[in-house]
């Protein structure tokens, strides 16, 4: 690099330093993200998978979206939040929190998580390896 003029040398050295800094910063973050990502497998692809992990609920989600994701009727979630469905279906949990519980940050999220945990169908919450008890009793001799 001795043959470069000072301006060119500074530019090249600057690029190399910036490149190394970006690699260092994102390299660490990528390694951390990979460790988190690596431990997870995609959910089963049978079309009947229902989410049960309430830690995945975020405050940008709306009640109808959460209701669909966890298969819990929206009326139960609105009831848990003590607010009307009317005019609130398109609002995120964050917006609902700011509008109805301005003093308690994050309370809407917690209430929805609690309502999901309490109201998900029993066969979804249980261990997937354990046989699911049918809701309608089967008569002896029936197939």
């Amino acid at each position: 690099m001795d043959t470069l003029n000072p301006k060119q040398r500074n530019f090249v050295v600057g690029l190399i330093i910036i490149g190394l800094m970006i690699i260092g910063f994102f390299g660490l973050r990528t390694a951390r993200a990979f460790r988190q990502f690596h431990g997870h497998r995609p959910p089963p692809f049978d079309g009947e998978h229902v989410e049960t992990d309430v830690s995945l609920i975020r405050d940008w989600m709306t009640v109808p979206f959460i209701s669909r994701m966890y298969r819990v009727p929206p009326s139960i979630l609105f009831e848990a939040l003590k607010i009307s469905e009317q005019g609130n279906k398109g609002k995120s949990l964050k917006q609902l929190n700011e509008e109805y519980y301005p003093q308690d940050e994050g309370i809407a999220l917690e209430k929805v998580k609690a309502a999901i945990s309490a109201n998900q169908p029993q066969q979804i919450q249980g261990n997937p390896d354990t046989p699911v008890v049918p809701l309608t009793p089967t008569l002896p001799g029936s197939p």
Binding site: G19, M21, G24, T30, R32, P42, P43, L56
Partner: peptide
């Protein structure tokens, strides 16, 4: 990944940054 998409997004965003760093370093 369905409902776990944030894990994928986190990894891809950071990996994109890493590639950008490699391109800047390689360019220099």
């Amino acid at each position: 990944f369905g409902s776990q998409w944030e894990l994928v997004s986190n990894f891809i965003s950071n990996f994109g940054g890493l590639i950008l760093g490699v391109v800047v370093l390689g360019g220099g």
